[in-house]
Design a protein around this nucleic acid. Structure first.
Lengths: 143, 143
DNA sequence: TTTAAAGTCTACTAAATTAGTAGACTACCA
DNA sequence: TGGTAGTCTACTAATTTAGTAGACTTTAAA
């Protein structure tokens, strides 16, 4: 159960945007370079963040990307869900009718519990928290 | 981030064994039938549980499988790890040296936190807890 | 009004993983 | 010694992942 590169890269990319919040449009090319990610791949990843309304874009010359909202108002659960899709370990939690065993299934309860734990952990962190940690931890690689 | 069928089926299979703990060897064929899983596929899944020392096998006539230890001593984290492999969302948590960014990486801290939350949830449940819940919830499908 | 810079959209692909199937083989009890 | 039951290895179809590629659109500024 590994996280996809999309979620890992996307998280770093949006943190990069958060670190530059208020500076106007940031070039995808610069994010790609700072984070060591292919620019072309990053385009697709950022598109997912834009689709979720977490990031906004400016087209044309002097365009780029910026956070759509204040970093303190963006929960990490939103970010990860935008990148990985619904954070549900097992489909039957979303729709129990797909499995005839659901009414008696105890395994489901286990997955529900793990799910809630993950969600709680991600709900309790905002992008601003990450920015603060990044500043405390030090800025490597010219972030 | 969906759980594999291996983890889902395997969890139900070992719970089935736990429900029949103390009854001697249980046939893989019967588990497969009760749980609605292909017998051939279940063989491979149970092999993983055996490899992790959670289940023991008896070959030959009147053989089958049984829990290797008391259900109360088997944590769900052991079960899931036996089936899914290391429960680490991101490789760099196991070995930070694989990523030159690790020393400054704040994303890593997020994944570590989520990881701990998942592990805690699974550590706090034993197979016996599942058996108890199953009994309280009712036995569907002739489990 | 042209031009270059920037994001957007769609299609393609190689590699890896998942979810099995298949079958020959070995061990054990009666 | 026969049959029951687990074991081992190989194969495969489908899906997902992790990108690459390129033509297209929008826009600021010269």
């Amino acid at each position: 159960m590994r996280l996809s590169t999309k979620a890992r890269y996307g998280t770093r990319a949006i943190l990069d945007l958060a670190m530059h919040y208020g500076e106007g449009p940031i070039l995808i090319r610069d994010i790609a370079q700072r984070q060591g990610i292919s620019k072309k791949y990053l385009e697709q990843i950022i598109a997912a963040l834009k689709g979720a309304g977490l990031v906004k874009s400016f087209r044309g010359a002097h365009g780029g990307y910026a956070l759509a909202r204040d970093p303190a108002s963006i929960k990490m659960s939103e970010v990860v869900q935008a990148l990985e899709g619904p954070l549900t370990l097992v489909e039957c939690l979303e729709d129990p009718s797909i499995c005839s065993r659901a009414p008696y299934c105890v395994a489901m309860e286990v997955w529900a519990r793990v799910n809630r734990a993950m969600l709680d952990a991600l709900d309790s962190l905002t992008l601003q928290d990450l920015v603060d940690r990044q500043i405390r931890k030090g800025l490597g690689y010219g972030i």
